[in-house]
Design a binder for these strands. Structure first.
Lengths: 138, 138
DNA sequence: TATTGTTATACTCTATAACTATA
DNA sequence: TATAGTTATAGAGTATAACAATA
C-alpha cells in the first residue's frame, strides 16, 4: 500500500469519526459524562476506582463526574454489600435510554450516508469492515 | 448493508480514530493548540476571527490560545497591512516542524498496523479508501 | 457606527494533597 | 495499616460582557 493511500485512509477515518461524533451532539451532558455512560453500557456496573482507571482520570475527578450523573438521574450509585467502602455505579433507566438514543442517532446518520453509495461501494465496505476492526484492535 | 455491518463499521472507525490520535500523543500542547496548528497547516494563514469560527470557539478564547502559541513559538501573529485591526496568524518554522512530526508519528503507527495485514486485505482497504473519503465528505 | 480583537470576570473540568470511613 | 472514596484548593480552558482600536 502506497504512503499516499495510507494517509488518505487515515484522514478519511479521522474525519468520519469526527462527523459520527457530531451527528449525536448533545448539550445536556459533558464529554466526560457521556464517556462514563458508554463505559458503563459496554463494561457494566463497576466501582468508582475502576471507572477512574478506565477513563484515565483521578478518583476526585470521577467523584465529581459521577455525582453530576447521579444528580441528573443517569446513573445509580450504591455501597457494595460486602464492602461498604466500595461504590457500585451503574446505568439507570434514563442512562440506558440515553445510550440507546445516542446510538440510534449515530446509526441514522451513518445509514443516511451509506444510502448515498452504490451497491458495489457498499459491498466493498462490507469486506473492509472486519479488516478495519482488526486494525483497530491489534 | 445490514444494520449489523453498519454498527461494526462505525465502531471500528471510531476506535481506529482514537488509536491514531493516541499514537501521536504529546504533552507539550493542549488539544485546542494542536487543533489550531492543524487548521493553519490545512487552511493557511488567517485572521483570529476566522480561526475562532473554524475552531468553533469564541474570539476571547482564541486570543488566549493564539497568545500561548505565539509565546511558545509555534505561530506568528502580525497586523495586516491593509487593516490594522486584523491579525494574520500563521505557522512558524517550529509550528511546521510540529505538524510534520505529528504526521510522521501517525503515519508510522498506521503503517505498522497495516503491515500486519495480508496483501489481499490491503487491496480491499485501497478500494475502500475513496469510499470512506466520500462518506466523510458528503 | 460597524468590525476586529482584548480585558475582566466567572464557571467548568481537572489535578494534587489532605482527609474520612471501612477493612 | 491499607484501601475506597471525598473534600479542599489551585490551575487550565472556556464563555459572556464590557472595552479599545481601527475602519
Amino acid at each position: 500500500m502506497t504512503s499516499e493511500v495510507n494517509q488518505q485512509l487515515r484522514f478519511a477515518i479521522q474525519k468520519l469519526a469526527r462527523r459520527i461524533r457530531a451527528s449525536s451532539a448533545d448539550e445536556e451532558l459533558s464529554e466526560a459524562q457521556r464517556s462514563v455512560l458508554f463505559t458503563l453500557a459496554n463494561h457494566g456496573t463497576q466501582s468508582l476506582g475502576s471507572l477512574s482507571e478506565h477513563e484515565q482520570v483521578t478518583p476526585p475527578t470521577m467523584t465529581r463526574t459521577v455525582s453530576a450523573l447521579v444528580s441528573s438521574g443517569y446513573v445509580s450509585s450504591t455501597s457494595a454489600e460486602d464492602d461498604a467502602r466500595r461504590l457500585e455505579i451503574g446505568l439507570s433507566g434514563k442512562g440506558e435510554a440515553f445510550i440507546e438514543e445516542t446510538r440510534r442517532r449515530r446509526d441514522a446518520w451513518f445509514t443516511k450516508q451509506l444510502g448515498g453509495l452504490s451497491a458495489e461501494q457498499r459491498r466493498i465496505l462490507e469486506l473492509a469492515t472486519p479488516i478495519l476492526k482488526e486494525l483497530a484492535e491489534s
